[in-house]
Nucleic acid binder design. Sequence first.
DNA 1: TTTGAGAATTAGGTTGGTCTAAAAATAATT
DNA 2: AATTATTTTTAGACCAACCTAATTCTCAAA
Lengths: 220, 220
Amino acid sequence: MELTVAEENYLKAIYHLSDGGKKSVSTNDIASEMKTKPASVSDMLRKLGEKEVIEYRKYYGLQITDSGKRYALQTIRKHRLWEVFLVDKLNFAWDEVHEVAEQLEHIQSPLLIQRLDAFLNYPKFDPHGDPIPDEFGDVRSRPRVQLNEMEINQTGQIVAVEDSSAAFLRYLDKVGAYIGARIKVLDKVEFDGSIEILVDQKKTIFMSKDVASNILIIQS
Amino acid sequence: MELTVAEENYLKAIYHLSDGGKKSVSTNDIASEMKTKPASVSDMLRKLGEKEVIEYRKYYGLQITDSGKRYALQTIRKHRLWEVFLVDKLNFAWDEVHEVAEQLEHIQSPLLIQRLDAFLNYPKFDPHGDPIPDEFGDVRSRPRVQLNEMEINQTGQIVAVEDSSAAFLRYLDKVGAYIGARIKVLDKVEFDGSIEILVDQKKTIFMSKDVASNILIIQS
DNA sequence: TTTGAGAATTAGGTTGGTCTAAAAATAATT
DNA sequence: AATTATTTTTAGACCAACCTAATTCTCAAA
């Protein structure tokens, strides 16, 4: 069965918002993610329900079906492969690729994606460090390391904290670190293991080894 | 101004059918090229006229405007660059690329095309030997050679004949050669300059030097 | 347990691109 | 020149994807 471009986009948004089918998603959430109105979303949910890529009960919510997940992962795979292409081969900066990849992800040609994958040397992660699903939709999630174990000049993204006490989160917030931030290790002090990192290519933060060991990074 | 995908496709078809604005094109021709019905074409011609990419007078015909030519050449440029990419980088066969390039040509991103062009080393011809317009729409047409001047194993495409008498054209038709045919030189006889060529990868033809000298080829 | 507030859905309309069937314009033939 | 044939355009409909406005549903608070 063929999905339209709009259907692919909705399905991808639903997949992301529901965190792969785990969380529930509201019509309003989808509308704001897709920059459309809730009325349009209801309409589309009915259609997606008819195509059985979601299970949809009016007013109650929805659930992505296995079929739906496969479609979503396929689109995500294409998006991320194209991002790798743009950055690795065409020298795009990592923040310039999204729009173009949004268009390229809808090109229909299994052969193209197969060849592109080979041409790029079967990358497992996109330029943002997000994993690229394989052709069956399987995702290898990247191992996470503690920030204090990283070396100078390595880069990555904050994905979780080990100490999730309010005090610690407040501290992170205060210094400008947050889940999802992209970081780069600028310096490490051998003496006490304290570390200096660059957040989002603009803000520099110093922190003790103790703090750093509570921050989990996926490297990129 | 932005053209829709359908508008780009119609404009490209009109450009090709009119041979770059030289010949006149009928509604029926466009319909059969686009695999739509004449009624749909009339509708679209009105829209293209309003956007001033063609000059359209009902029942009388149409003329591509300079603006229209620029759009058409831009689309053709993108199509052919993508074809080079598919063949040179992703190892597609030359007859597998068209469908995919039809999709890729509609991706909107001037930066992408600029970078792709550089990545491919500013190719001047696509895998079919057709010239790639530059970003201003200028086309460098490939120098044409007489078939008898080609060497063994060289390939190319028949683009014109020097003797266009009915007798000669009838002869060409009879042996299975035609304008547009892809050919490869299989053998040349030193003694009398006669030549053996392979047409469209299937048919072998022998011809005298005299005949060959009246056939013009662009090499690829 | 009734009642609002807010979320979600339906009703009805618009636009782009297509279609069929009918009408109009042009071209061809007697 | 008149009639017929062909091409082209218009009229009216449909589908996908969106919209606004009105309605319906749910859920929490009074």
